[in-house]
Simulated assay, not measured.
Amino acid sequence: MDQDKPYRIEAAAARALAEWKATFAEQVAYQAKELAKKSGSPQVITLGHYRQAASIAVQKLATAVRDTDSNDGRQEAA
């Protein structure tokens, strides 16, 4: 894409991106807290917890993206 030329983003695409970003952030925070609880120090969330949580959140995000694809009015080729 040419950086100097303006482009438009469909409203549905912008909404989906915002939802995906929120889903990812929420899942990372939630999973990190759960991992901290299981570690025996529930008050301390470490970088390691966030790394592991992010890996889990990526899987949740992939599901959210697939769900959006199935609801966008287009059919994928079989």
Rank of each mutant, 00 (worst) to 15 (best):
Q3T: 06
K5G: 00
K5T: 03
K5H: 07
P6M: 10
Y7R: 12
Y7N: 04
Y7T: 15
R8D: 11
R8L: 07
I9T: 12
I9Q: 08
I9L: 07
E10T: 09
A11R: 14
A11G: 12
A11L: 07
A12G: 06
A12E: 14
A12I: 14
A12C: 11
A13T: 14
A14E: 06
A14Q: 13
A14R: 15
L17K: 07
L17E: 11
L17G: 07
L17W: 02
A18D: 07
E19Q: 04
E19G: 01
W20C: 06
K21P: 00
A22E: 13
A22K: 11
T23R: 14
T23K: 14
F24M: 06
F24T: 03
F24Q: 03
F24E: 00
A25C: 14
A25E: 10
A25M: 12
E26F: 00
Q27S: 15
V28F: 02
V28P: 00
A29V: 14
A29Y: 05
A29H: 05
Y30N: 06
Y30W: 13
Q31E: 08
K33S: 01
K33L: 03
K33A: 04
K33V: 02
K33R: 07
E34F: 02
E34M: 08
E34C: 06
L35G: 07
L35T: 05
A36D: 01
K38R: 14
S41Y: 02
S41I: 10
P42T: 03
Q43A: 14
V44K: 02
I45P: 04
I45V: 15
T46S: 10
L47D: 14
L47W: 11
L47Y: 11
G48T: 12
H49R: 01
R51F: 01
Q52N: 09
Q52M: 02
A53G: 02
A53L: 03
A54E: 05
A54Y: 00
S55H: 02
I56H: 01
A57P: 03
V58G: 00
Q59V: 13
K60A: 10
L61W: 05
L61E: 04
A62Q: 12
T63Y: 09
T63F: 10
T63A: 06
V65D: 00
V65I: 10
V65L: 07
R66H: 14
R66S: 12
D67T: 15
T68L: 08
D69G: 08
S70P: 02
S70H: 09
N71M: 12
N71L: 03
D72Y: 09
D72I: 06
R74G: 08
Q75C: 07
E76V: 14
E76S: 10
A77H: 15
A77F: 09
A78N: 10
